[in-house]
Design a protein around this nucleic acid. Structure first.
Lengths: 319, 319
DNA sequence: GGTAACCGGGCGGATTCCGCCCTGATTAGG
DNA sequence: CCTAATCAGGGCGGAATCCGCCCGGTTACC
């Protein structure tokens, strides 16, 4: 009266929960002969689930990640965690509401019991309250993975790109690194046709395709530093340096990372940034609330002064 | 030479991917008799996977979420999406690095092929760059679910709580709603022993336990509005109203949501907020960069004036 | 009432499954 | 070098089950 299916599923669960178990152990857990266990292993293999077996003393079985993903057995809380994570990720723009994220979400939703679904919805509502609903600019995971693979394998990518003014065109690109930055995904690398470093927005990419052409990324390339610089540098006219009367930790807390970098020097906490728009920088400085000294550029002092003037007038009720 | 296990797994996959399929369709897809299909259904049922069958014309089978979660079959991109979402959620403090999120992540990691794992790691690095590494204050999903269930079923919760000054004590609480707010989870409700509305930080809760005591939540309770108010109101002394020379959308974009609410009125865009710290509010106003008129309180005008003065001095290079 | 779906009993033959033998190969450790 | 522990798999025979094909029944929609 016992089919083998439940036992094979149980075996899968055992393998997932207790990697490295030995044959006799597993056989005993399942209540079957070792020979039968081996037959089950063979079946799993036929299912596309590769089970790695190390022989000899100290041997054992463990799942080896293969091309096809084995069925995953989650608990209720885990399902909740996954669903909420997907929701949160979508809210902050890490993933899109279409493509793989959506199908994964749908799969979860379909199997989750009603009470767990309710929990998820409730936690989702809680997120709704505080996380801003981002515009639908997140690229689907499928597009991201193409770039991810290209970065890892040093392959050129070919794709269509829509610039900010709406013009579209084809690009050949050597991606150095992916960056998620203030709600958007960027890919940093070299535009082959234009022979220049570029930061492209991944959500403006259409139909990316891995090519066979490989490239060698630049030597001694510090991704984080370079990216910060290159992102901040995109269109900049002013090199800003401000001495802050604030400790570095507090400053980092109040200054958005895209605005610039905060460093501690002998003279105190220094903000270095590159800016196109000095009035924006003035607003950031005003938002700090601390005293500061503008080292350069001089124009920033004027902006701060102007902002202070406007503030004063606002405070005095002048319209 | 064919076992039934692969076909049962295939059936599961079919049910997950194409809910509502009819018996004949499924039988044909699997290449088995309808009778056999029914036997498979019975087996799934025995596995704890409830399959809902609607009879009659227009009938069909679909998975009905049951207590035990059936094995989930994800594709590679879906696994990536899930892993990245978990990472992102942890970064912004939605979930913790322990408990269900961690085990779910571990399960995913164990089954994911090497190249996909590499992609995930890379996308995670990209997140690392821009999302702040939050302190480990996120509560495990298990704790959240207790409160979620309590909210849904109107049940009191009993737990230990550590106040901000380190004192610990037991609490009996009637939770009205969960809120995720600027990187932290809160539960809003009524503290039974103190007979007062409270907002508690979920990460300071220890060992929450659902009780059998039910309660009736207050009538006409608008969660969003009330929460905003009560969160902003926790320790507040000042009622702030400022008329902004800025359109509402831009204002909402620049003002953090915890700071207050932006509404459009006939007179223009108005920011209403409650604040403990007027200088903080002044900094926010300064960061807007626009002109504004402080309607109340008068003290805020002084703060703005003081800030403007400091700014002016900073611009003039006075230390 | 007819049709299209689900439901399940029963039956008989083919198939598979499973436990128990066996031999081998591989690895770690003494 | 030899032993112990482990995986790998062939073969066999009996038992279990699986499966296709009957069947009549029920439920719901047209």
């Amino acid at each position: 009266m016992s089919s083998s299916t439940p036992r094979i599923l149980a075996l899968l669960e055992l393998l997932q929960s207790r990697p490295g178990a030995t044959g006799p152990q597993l056989a005993e857990s399942l209540g079957v002969d070792q020979r039968t266990l081996r037959r089950y292993m063979r079946q799993l293999d036929d299912l596309g689930i590769t089970v790695q077996a190390t022989r000899g003393r100290r041997g054992g079985y463990r799942l080896r990640p293969g091309f096809k993903l084995p069925p995953l057995l989650f608990t209720g809380p885990e399902a909740v965690a996954l669903s909420v994570a997907l929701l949160a990720a979508r809210r902050i723009g890490v993933s899109a509401g279409d493509g793989a994220s959506a199908t994964a979400e749908a799969k979860l939703r379909r199997v989750v019991p009603a009470d767990v679904a309710e929990l998820t919805a409730q936690l989702g509502d809680a997120l709704d309250f505080t996380l801003p609903e981002t515009a639908a600019t997140a690229p689907p995971v499928e597009v991201l993975t193409v770039f991810g693979e290209a970065v890892a394998r040093h392959r050129r990518v070919h794709f269509g790109y829509r610039t900010h003014d709406g013009a579209t065109g084809e690009r050949e690109f050597e991606p150095y690194r992916l960056v998620f930055h203030s709600g958007r995904w960027y890919v940093v690398g070299r535009d082959v046709t234009r022979a220049a470093l570029r930061n492209l927005r991944v959500d403006r990419v259409a139909g990316p395709r891995l090519t066979d052409v490989s490239f060698t990324p630049p030597e001694g390339f510090d991704p984080a530093a370079h990216l910060l610089g290159s992102l901040a540098a995109v269109p900049y006219r002013h090199d800003v340096e401000v001495l802050l009367d604030l400790d570095a930790a507090a400053a980092r807390d109040r200054i958005p990372r895209w605005a610039g970098t905060v460093v501690s020097t002998g003279a105190g906490t220094v903000l270095r940034a590159r800016a196109e728009d000095l009035s924006g920088m003035a607003r950031i400085l005003a938002g700090l609330g601390c005293r500061f000294t503008v080292r350069r550029p001089a124009g920033l002092r004027d902006e701060v002064r102007a902002l202070a003037g406007r503030l004063m007038e606002s405070a005095d009720g002048v319209t």
